[in-house]
């Protein structure tokens, strides 16, 4: 017999939840003059080879992590042309650079050389870029998402996707299933999230298992089911969606974060188009990374 009640004993005997200790001070601060204060751009990307690419004004700088050296990759030269997005290929040293005039450059970072230029990639600025092996997808203020195979000689995209009614500011390929089976998520200033499948697969007509009244299925089909229409379109966000992240562990789970008016992170099952969960973060969500079942959200907090 114990003088301690059963519930209390259970409480005492259960292992204490280990709190993650996160260092609250940055271990390094670098000056980034002319780093644009623009929600719709994507100017910082870290490569698999441990090089950080940063777009500053009309230049792109590379910061190598292991020796902290800085290299200037390029200067666009024209004062009216600024860097609006940078993106590394998943594996390797190839960097794609999008500009405010809609040009697209591809560089090799080891030799600091320009590999090719698409001078008329988009009509307006390119704020989002995403690689899937040799396919480069670009999202622009002209509301389009273009897909180009960088091995092909032609400058024309092999596919153009129209799903957003305003600027496309977030693009993310899912890594699961290999490059052949990947799905692309795009977020726009029209507060919509679109899911694309380049293989052209579409939901069967019976793929609407739950009626509109049940409120469980939140994705809606594109107007045209053929090819260029999104597989799913999510309407729940009430502000621009820039932050997109695929779950590295569960196939087909996507997290999206909304801007100033919305402040929510939402989780989606892309396989059946349902919303799994939503979180109120209390601030604009600019970017999301999913790491080992931990969600990291970065809001626009003014810290003093």
């Amino acid at each position: 017999m114990s003088p301690v009640r059963a519930e209390s004993r259970q409480l005492l005997e259960s292992p204490r939840r280990q709190l993650r200790s996160v260092c609250k001070t940055p271990y390094r601060v670098l000056d980034a003059p002319d780093l644009a204060d623009d929600f719709y751009l994507n100017l910082v990307d870290w490569s698999s080879t441990n090089v950080l690419g940063v777009g500053l004004g009309s230049c792109v700088y590379l910061w190598t992590a292991h020796n902290a050296s800085v290299n200037k990759l390029c200067d666009l030269g024209a004062p009216q042309d600024q860097v609006s997005s940078v993106s590394w290929v998943q594996k390797g040293t190839t960097l794609a650079v999008g500009t405010t005039t809609g040009r697209l450059h591809i560089y090799d970072a080891t030799t600091l050389t320009l590999l090719r230029t698409y001078s008329q990639a988009h009509n307006q600025r390119i704020g989002a870029l995403a690689w899937n092996a040799h396919i480069l997808s670009s999202g622009s203020r002209d509301r389009m998402v273009h897909h180009r195979d960088v091995r092909e000689a032609t400058h024309r995209p092999f596919k153009r996707c129209t799903g957003h009614k305003q600027e496309v500011c977030g693009l993310k390929w899912s890594g699961d299933g290999g490059p052949q089976a990947a799905t692309l998520a795009s977020g726009g200033n029209d507060n919509k999230v679109c899911i694309w499948d380049l293989r052209g697969s579409r939901r069967a007509a019976a793929g609407r298992p739950i009626g509109p009244g049940s409120g469980n299925t939140s994705g809606s089909a594109g107007e045209d089911a053929a090819g260029d229409a999104p597989l799913w379109k999510f309407h729940e966000h009430t502000a621009a969606v820039k932050a997109l992240a695929w779950d590295p562990h569960v196939s087909g789970v996507l997290a999206t974060g909304g801007g100033t008016q919305d402040k929510h992170i939402r989780f989606w099952n892309v396989l059946n188009g349902s919303m799994l969960n939503e979180l109120d973060t209390g601030s604009q969500v600019c970017l999301l990374i999913l790491v080992k079942s931990t969600i990291t959200d970065f809001g626009a907090r003014f810290a003093t």
Binding site: R20, V22, P26, N42, V44, W46, S47, C286, I289, R301
Partner: peptide
């Protein structure tokens, strides 16, 4: 889990190292 403070303006860009 944690809130990291230090920036004096809104945070717009984020990247994670390969490790």
């Amino acid at each position: 889990v944690a809130s990291l403070t230090g920036h004096t303006h809104r945070v717009l860009y984020l990247a994670m190292s390969p490790d």
